[in-house]
Simulated scan of single mutants.
Amino acid sequence: MRGTATPARTAGEISPPAKAEFLRWPEAFGSRFCLFIDTEEEFDWSRPFDRNARETTAVAALPDAHRRLRDGGAAPAYLVDHPIATARQAIDAIGPLVEAGASVGAQLHPWVNPPFQETVDHHNSYPGNLRPALEMAKLDLLSEAITTNFGRRPRIYRAGRYGIGPETLAGLAHRGYRIDSSMRARYDYRAAGGPGFARIGNRAFRRDGIVELPLTTIFTGMLRALGPALYPMLGPVPKGRGAFARARLLSRVALTPEDMPLAEATEAIRIAAGEGIRLLNFSFHSPSLVPGFTPYVRDPADLARFHGWWDGVLAELARLGYRSTNEAELIEAIDAAG
């Protein structure tokens, strides 16, 4: 008799929060924005995952980028993975920023994070697809490296490739983490073997002992009110999403300078403000600060547009009354929240 294969472990579709799970920010918190930077090694996004791809030369651009963002009113937090947390040049570049008050958290890229017990492949690139014991063993080594080399125990986490698993949040809470920011609102990675966030919106919520701060995604266009239901339906339609976006009927806009035009981002911010979203969560990948390392910044002209994007976005946030927030302020507000 032939045995039955064990199905692959995945998070599947993440259920939306119940009403009781939503976080109610204190009134004094006001309207805020945070910036969590995926601070990671350089690798060729078009090639298979490689344990030996651990170069961290792009960190040399971080101090200047940090200054520019701080001058514009942002408070960058660096979610570092294992190559960053253990490379001397990365520690030397980021350490002074942390000493000056920047936040440092954890980001888990399992293929370059020991212990190395799994096959390096697409499925296992999502850390939540690993056995829970291995996922947490990797997180423990990463957390210790960050604590040792940056002098602070990380309290913010992001799964590499947004790849949380069924036990990730509870495991984080057990280890003293306070915030997870792995869920990318309104995105669905199930077809590629990852989790699905199509039913996750932009509001913070509590689950399994931790607070989830989803990466902000805003629907724009004349049909934006129908976005949560309509956008997934357009996926199987050939060129359907593109046609609706060109007709200004419906677009999905993530708050990142990577492949999101400035005009669309500022429109999304205005819509978010009008909808009363109290916290906006921005992100980008640190190698985008140097041309040639990501698909989003290929040459100096792209880099100039990247910095110009931030200039325009930060000016719009200030105009609308959004102030930056950091890890300490977030946790203080979480403790005071209903």
Rank of each mutant, 00 (worst) to 15 (best):
M1F: 15
G3Y: 10
T4P: 00
T4N: 01
R9V: 05
R9P: 01
T10D: 02
G12H: 11
P17D: 01
A20H: 15
E27T: 15
F29Q: 07
S31H: 09
S31W: 02
D38Y: 04
E42Q: 12
F43H: 14
D50W: 11
N52Q: 13
A53I: 04
R54S: 08
L62Q: 13
R68K: 14
G72K: 07
G73N: 06
A74K: 03
V104R: 02
P115Q: 12
F116E: 03
E118K: 13
D121T: 03
H123R: 04
L130G: 00
L141S: 07
S143Y: 02
S143P: 01
G151L: 00
R152I: 01
R152F: 06
A159V: 09
R161S: 09
P166W: 00
E167F: 11
T168D: 06
Y187H: 15
P195Q: 08
R199Q: 15
N202Y: 01
D208C: 04
V211S: 10
L213C: 00
L215N: 04
F219S: 03
L223N: 07
L230H: 10
P238D: 12
P238Q: 10
G242C: 06
F244M: 07
A245S: 11
R248M: 05
R252F: 00
A263F: 05
E264M: 13
I271Y: 08
A272S: 13
H285L: 07
G292Y: 12
D299M: 03
A301G: 06
L317F: 10
A318E: 11
R323Y: 10
A336T: 05
A337D: 12
